[in-house]
């Protein structure tokens, strides 16, 4: 079942618990799936997340090459008032921004070799300072904060994407507010 979910972002939301028998989420592990038929919808999701983000947040952007991670992060940063360039962070590993939401660090861990490299790139310091958006978060291993929002983007045929949002810790309640249960 796919239903329009208001929330001012025009995203189609499907609760896995209702639409996918056997995929019912744990009570402390609420996840929801969004259809992102085009890049504009990916951007809308980025903006929506910016509306709910707070200093200290970690938003982990999972997904393969071309899944739309940087596009989502760029929309997040634009919504947070960033007007300067938002380049891919792959080469620089981290791009720091001063935003209306405070400091936001956009990480790309594609090039790091082990979680211990996180010390060198100031990952935890960035979490202390503000919001962290992190691509290729699985490379952080156990160093990824337990309190975070996991966003998994999947590229389907013809540019259609899906996003699976999985809230951990404090994000649980906020996500529920952002995408109210369509039922």
């Amino acid at each position: 079942m796919r239903v329009a979910a208001g929330a001012g972002v025009g995203l189609n939301v499907a609760m896995p618990s209702q639409s996918m028998p056997g995929a019912r989420p744990e009570s402390d592990d609420q996840s929801l799936c969004l259809d992102l038929p085009d890049l504009a919808r990916t951007a809308a999701l980025g903006r929506a997340l910016a509306g709910a983000a707070r200093p200290g947040d970690c938003i982990a952007l999972h997904g393969d090459l071309g899944a739309g991670k940087t596009e989502l992060a760029r929309a997040f940063l634009r919504a947070a008032g960033v007007s300067e360039d938002v380049p891919s962070p792959t080469f620089a590993i981290v791009q720091p921004y001063d935003t209306d939401l405070g400091p936001v660090a956009h990480f790309d861990l594609y090039r790091i070799e082990s979680p211990s490299d996180l010390d060198e790139i100031g990952f935890e310091a960035a979490l202390d300072d503000g919001i962290v958006l992190v691509e290729w978060p699985e490379r952080a291993g156990p160093r990824l904060p337990a309190d975070r929002l996991d966003v998994t983007l999947t590229l389907g045929p013809e540019g259609r994407r899906t996003a699976r949002l999985q809230a951990l810790g404090d994000w649980l309640s906020r996500l529920a507010g952002l995408f109210p249960d369509p039922a």
Partner: peptide, 29 residues
């Protein structure tokens, strides 16, 4: 390069005008 993709008018020392840049990935990337 891997990290940059820009067109710059280089007019003098300290005088650079960026005419264009990548809006997403660099070409080396």
């Amino acid at each position: 390069s891997g990290g940059h993709c820009q067109l710059l008018a280089v007019e003098g020392v300290g005088r650079y005008r960026r005419l264009g840049t990548t809006i997403d990935d660099a070409v080396g990337e």
